[in-house]
Design a binder for these strands. Structure first.
Lengths: 351, 351
DNA sequence: GTGAAAGCGCTAACAG
DNA sequence: CTGTTAGCGCTTTCAC
């Protein structure tokens, strides 16, 4: 009953108690086939009784596996706590790590100095079996260094220059396309967009989706309706102030947080949402439902995204890094109030 | 220039290159005093040239230190990533870990099964030097087990049954007291409160502060003005629906997230904020400023809280777990719009 | 199927 | 001050 969990049990000790050799105990722990049924059971019993767990350091040293995964979130996103996206992602990753009996080491790169120190810290021998890196400016440099090391790495979000790296991403183009198509169906005429931080594939892809939807419906692209933000609430607020003079009647924001900020600017300008300006976000994080009106948005499977990433990384670790794995996940349109769908329902039937 | 960072350097190798013994290299790495200046410099140079870093597993095994810290966030708070409090906390902890060259292992206890498995996972030999545990229902059980092991642990938030455990907390009583005193000064007559999840010291202390402020001003405690929530937005929403019939003219919410939910319920009831009902929250997380109107709140030094916790834990690791360290941090009243301070300014002078 | 023995790469006495 | 020698607790050949 784990009553000895607290003692300094070793393999040797377990072997002595069970009356077998160290190697045999090691074999049963590692599920090695060459152990007879009865011996296996006897040893198993002792292990359970004593609550023995192999010393992790010793095990790592001998086996060159640590059963630890790293999650690296670069500085650009280390406004980590202001966007609920990252906590959600982290949670998914943590959950999957638990499930597969890996331990999660979290690296938040907060400062320029951290940025310098991160690679040696993370790539250090005897520490991690593999690493998950959020794509983005800083991430890109790191990725190459890990690739050179043949270190198992999965990038979260397609990197801009994806050599032979494995990555997982959501279909940002299609997500944005669906968002804007929805606005078009609802009859909006001047659909603007506030983009994410330039320099990331997510930003580029969401712009591409926005443009694709407009073009496919025969709309002209009006550059005054495209304003660049940075995935923050404040960024959304200021971007909206720039966008307002262009008189948009609907806005596709590249993230929910951007939408929240943009809606704040809109209210301050004395306009009503969605009557004067409709909004649609991206992510479907919790704040989307806290907003007033509640935010119509493109749902990313953030939790599953993290789980998938971990599973892919483990696959890489166990089966080699080649060929690179690539996973693209789908998004989903979540209709709430900010897009004015209820009120414009009839348009749906006209189009 | 770290050109060999990628190779499989060992101590032995560095020793060979520098023409000294393994032990000497080990000594310079570990800042041991007994090394002559010139030898130290020579070895140092080789280490830098080669970009050598000791194998972590080997080092841990030999020294019985892992330079890893654990952060355990139990299930009750694992709704966790819907409240920006925890990401902020995590970031502070991560930052401090970076600074002191420790690696952070994150354990999010998501399910009942995780709950069962968490202790062996975390207490496993050769893994962590110490652990930070968020206080709360599940945490409490864990704490005792770590204490029995003489395992260095610092509890985040005062545990309900604090034996000889070290912990760090904010002055919740005083924070709540200040919040409610502020409302009283502004002239509100029926000040209600929505509490956090019962069973945590933070909840109990904030209620105590609420009552203390009222009593000190000679107000009667009206139980119909006290409704229990659970630190979530939805909890705040439903609690407010219960509270509304009691006709509060001001509400002290035990967290910003609760306040957001409560304000949603208030708006739905057709009431204006702060004219009909004023609000004050607790935490000062980012959503406080996204809210409309922006939330007056009690600011917790969340980031510093994490940093302090890590520093305390490292102290425990290096200097023993006795006597237990206890740290209480101060809070700060942040006045924004939801309390109606601007509009009630005159009351300030009358009281 | 099982045990003996040789490391994994490092730290830490112990000599000198 | 420096080198030699034992381990740390485990995995993993290699014999039997």
């Amino acid at each position: 009953m784990g009553s000895l969990t607290e003692s300094n049990l070793t393999l040797e000790e377990i072997a002595r108690i069970s009356g077998v050799s160290r190697s045999t105990v090691s074999r049963v722990i590692n599920q090695h086939p060459n152990v007879s049924q009865d011996v296996r059971q006897r040893v198993q019993a002792v292990i359970e009784e004593t609550g023995y767990l192999p010393n992790l350091a010793a095990r790592s040293l001998a086996s060159k596996k640590s059963w630890m995964l790293g999650l690296v979130l670069p500085r650009s996103v280390s406004s980590f706590f202001s966007d609920p996206y990252f906590p959600r992602l982290t949670q998914g990753v943590a959950q999957a790590c638990n499930q597969y009996d890996f331990t999660l080491a979290l690296f938040l790169v907060g400062t320029k100095e951290d940025e310098q120190k991160i690679f040696p810290r993370v790539s250090r021998k005897g520490m991690l079996d593999g690493v998950l890196i959020q794509s983005g400016q800083i991430g890109e440099k790191l990725i190459d260094r890990f690739m050179n090391l043949k270190f198992p790495v999965v990038v979260l979000g397609r990197p801009l220059h994806s050599g032979d790296v494995s990555y997982i991403d959501v279909d940002n183009v299609n997500g944005a396309f669906n968002a804007v198509s929805h606005l078009i169906r609802l009859g909006y005429k001047r659909i603007g967009t506030i983009t994410g931080l330039p320099g990331s594939s997510a930003t580029a892809d969401r712009i591409a989706g926005y443009e694709k939807a407009l073009v496919e419906r025969g709309r002209n692209l009006d550059q005054s309706l495209i304003v660049h933000g940075d995935f923050t609430e404040a960024g959304g607020y200021y971007a909206m102030k720039q966008l307002l003079p262009a008189k948009p009647d609907a806005v596709f924001a590249a993230s929910d947080l951007i939408a929240i900020g943009a809606m704040r600017a809109t209210r301050e300008a004395g306009l009503n949402i969605p009557e004067d300006v409709a909004f649609i976000g991206f992510d479907d994080v919790s704040i989307a439902t806290y907003a007033d009106p509640q935010l119509t948005t493109i749902r990313q499977p953030i939790g599953n995204f993290g789980i998938n990433a971990v599973e892919t990384l483990i696959d890489l670790i166990e089966n080699g890094i080649e060929p690179p794995r690539r996973i693209i996940m789908d998004t989903e349109l979540i209709i709430r109030d900010s897009c004015g769908a209820a009120r414009r329902m009839e348009s749906l039937w006209k189009t």
